[in-house]
Nucleic acid binder design. Structure first.
Lengths: 240, 240
DNA sequence: ACAATAGTGTCTTTTAGACAGTATTAA
DNA sequence: TTAATACTGTCTAAAAGACACTATTGT
């Protein structure tokens, strides 16, 4: 270590250094509900407290790559698009000491997430209920004792804010969906992220008229039946 | 240090740790031009290379507070609103080794900035010219040898992206202005940040009709003459 | 009068939104 | 037939934009 930055106080005990970590909020929308992947706060903690998947940074590596590796470790392989949400550095945020986290966000199709998570008891997909004012979130679960430790509520709330900013003008909504999807599924992604309901007719018109980044537009590819009602058109995102 | 996080590898030379720093982009708009405050990359460097003001993080402190202290140190006292732009962690970004920077942005009235910076030879206010595609920026100066070291171009480019996202729906434009301003000054802030020109008539209508966060609206408070032409109305942001 | 910046008015196009109504399926 | 979801059409209001025009100053 002494060959790098010799003047920086790594070896000088006068200067504390924070514990550096990367946390990932793997989010999905299922049945119109926003959800996030959480895990027990340590391998042997059985007190029911859940945290976002995270890891300490212990090698020279871009944090985005660390986040991608975390997703591969907890969910599975894939070209996951991670987005940086921000840095959380308040000294009191971890009772054990000064900890600095860089938070990332990944949007995932619920079927993909469920398939990966199905066999892993440690993975919990927790419902996220953003506050009406958009500042915080509540996490619910089958067991009320299951709560997030640390300030991971704040990280998720910031992630929701980030998603709301990026819903229009990015491909984010489509990362919550499979390659093919119905208009209702796309609508429910928007509603879950925004936390408000949208007029179906106007939403459809807007989406069909819109050009997405990369010159992509909604294309229809057939019909799908799933219930005692008119079949829905199946869409995908493609070049016009 | 051993009382905190005993299991984290501070004392373990197997694990490298990055040099942690906070950098601040103090930005302003003058004569329709976006500018940023830069300083020589070290106190004794006389090679003309400039960097964003920054400091290593060496005590348990929220990074936003570190950024505010930096602004006070380089510019002067004031309740500066710092906004986090992001973390820059690519291993190759600093040739001396692994360095992780958290970047912040401050928008400042050019008169305030100039007044503070006037007596300080080390402070340079450098023009920022965003690329048309919005991905990068060019920095100009009276002396072409004056260039940013490290990846501070990227930090500034991210800062511009951040400002463009927040121009509508926040009070950011007004932080580039004094308490009182003319419609032209407000227009030029928007044009400089967006990098495009706007129709004056439509801009005026839009601004006068708009309600800004906190229920604030543009109020007029008199006229100002500054040239051989019709005097301009002076506006401020207040409750209706 | 002229140049220069400030400000108004009008017309068109685009977009968002409310909301009524039609379509197709299973039971 | 009914219930349920899918989809279309129409009208209105709001916003954005183009652009011609008027206003007020110093020289």
């Amino acid at each position: 270590m002494s060959t790098r930055f010799p003047e920086y106080p790594f070896e000088n005990p006068r200067y504390p250094l924070p514990r550096l970590s990367v946390e990932v909020a793997v989010m999905t929308v299922q049945d119109g509900e926003l959800q996030v992947l959480m895990v027990p706060r340590s391998e042997h903690a059985r007190d029911g407290r859940l945290v976002l998947p995270g890891t300490f940074v212990t090698e020279a590596c871009a944090f985005g790559d660390v986040a991608r590796q975390l997703v591969m470790q907890y969910v599975g392989p894939g070209g996951w698009a991670v987005e940086q949400v921000g840095v959380f550095s308040e000294p009191g945020r971890d009772p054990r000491g000064w900890a600095v986290s860089t938070a990332f966000l990944v949007a995932m199709d619920p079927r993909t997430l469920d398939a990966y998570v199905a066999g892993r008891a440690e993975c919990h997909v927790v419902s996220v209920d953003p506050d009406p004012d958009g500042r915080g979130v509540s996490l619910s679960h089958y067991d009320r004792r299951v709560l997030a430790a640390l300030d991971h509520h704040s990280i998720i709330a910031e992630g929701v804010r980030h998603m709301r900013d990026r819903l229009e003008g990015s491909l984010l909504p489509f990362r919550f969906l499979g390659e093919d999807f119905t208009m209702l599924e796309l609508l429910q992604v928007h509603e879950a992220v925004l936390g408000s309901s949208l007029d179906k007719s106007n939403f459809r018109k807007r989406m069909l008229a819109k050009t997405f980044p990369g010159g992509l537009q909604l294309q229809t590819t057939g019909l799908i039946e799933h219930g005692p009602h008119r079949p829905a058109a199946v869409y995908y995102l493609g070049k016009s």
